[in-house]
Nucleic acid binder design. Structure first.
Lengths: 230, 230
DNA sequence: CCCAATTGCGTAAAAATAACGCATTTTATT
DNA sequence: AATAAAATGCGTTATTTTTACGCAATTGGG
């Protein structure tokens, strides 16, 4: 049963792909974690991920594991760092290519399937298995950097949203507060937003306008990048 | 002779670390390449790099290979992407963690040692082995991004340099032209430069001032980051 | 019924960026 | 040798961008 069929002249490490999945519930940023059912770190929480097959890239591996463990399909994952500390896995030599993805919360209902997947707010994340604490730290930093150069709201917000929700998203990720009116002016001037519905005639002041992303502008900024000075 | 001693239940990829080494000669950016002496891609140029040992991280591997192949010691390498296309190496399944480093040209004299290492200006780089063309492309992009947030001149310029040399460095990396006087004002206002020598009394207009980096400020910016709006 | 909170829309001050002037001195050119 | 072109240091002035707020209307909570 325990055949060791694949042999090499020199020792080879195992390679895994892990996924840091970010979501947004309108107020705070969340990450998707899986509770480990086996040793090592049994019972501890960790990122979805697993061993890379010999005929797939790390991104493909990340997407496959993600679907297997959380049911989430076709997420757009992006690698951000490879962790290769010699003792990061107590069993054997494993290096992991860490990825992250942004998804709408509605697409993954925690506590799905077999795996016990659950969303955690950033300030509720427990101590994680392996070196996943460090991986999370770096993923968060990368997310903060990215939000300043690329629009990312589309992946995290519902189709239609209010300006306040968009601002909450930026504030949650960057951990800062903006002046509401300046944020409003800036976003409108960028031209990235389109009014979702013509504001109804009977709409009163406290009924906020609904926006959606201007797909054309959004794609343009995705490619050319922009510079959000916050 | 050809023992295959290390056996696993599932196939494992080989893992390598490659290094994109950037240098600057006062006018243009250069990369350090090695001409391959063996198949595959014999005779083609490629980045220094090689197989990761089981008890080292990818960064350690990158530094070790770099020293073995170019004599360059203790370079500060930083990984930027892991390339895992299934067919990127025609022999076997190999994924590579690509790193880059910035060094002073004087520290590596091309055509050293056994290996035939040579510096190439960016616009003279030939078609490279494996997927190294793509690796270079991504390394260049990363360098462009980094230069806007961190001072990097210290690694690339000689100890003492003129404002024009510094500007040439930025222009070479970003492939843009700046107004000389605005660049001058900006750099001085940042406070990152210190005058290397008190300008000699007999110095005439066309004898440029010499600067060095203000180590304190330089380190501060390294950590906190800055924002160069170009 | 009153008060705090929310929303849309502006405007003025402050700061940063971009554009360019100019005298002087070298080096290159005719 | 005379002249033109390029390099350097040090400014100044527009232009644009960012920041800091004002204000009225409306709503929900107490």
């Amino acid at each position: 049963m325990n055949e060791q069929k694949f042999c090499y002249k020199y020792p080879h490490p195992s390679v895994t792909a892990d996924c840091v999945i970010f979501g947004f519930d309108g107020v705070s940023i969340k990450v998707l974690l899986i509770q480990r059912g086996i040793e090592p770190f049994k019972g501890k929480w960790a990122f979805p991920g697993g061993f890379m097959k010999i005929d797939e890239t790390t991104e493909e591996c990340a997407r496959r594991e993600l679907e297997e463990e959380t049911g989430l399909k076709n997420a757009s994952v992006e690698q951000f760092h490879t962790f290769s500390d010699v003792s990061r896995d107590p069993r054997e030599r494993v290096i992991t290519v860490a990825h992250y993805a942004l998804v709408r919360l509605s697409e993954v209902k925690g506590g799905d399937d077999a795996a016990s997947a659950r969303w955690f707010a950033m300030d509720e994340v427990p101590s994680l298995a392996f070196d996943h604490d460090r991986i999370l730290q770096m993923a968060v930093n990368r997310l903060k950097e990215r939000i300043c150069f690329e629009p990312i709201g589309f992946e995290l917000l519902p189709e239609v949203f209010t300006m306040t929700e968009l601002q909450n998203l930026y504030e949650a990720i960057l951990e800062v507060k903006f002046d509401r009116r300046n944020f409003y002016n800036k976003m409108l001037k960028l031209g990235i937003l389109a009014e979702a519905e013509p504001r109804p005639a009977n709409a009163s002041r406290r009924t906020p306008s609904k926006y959606r992303f201007n797909a054309e502008k959004y794609t343009e900024f995705k490619q050319k990048g922009f510079r959000l000075e916050f």
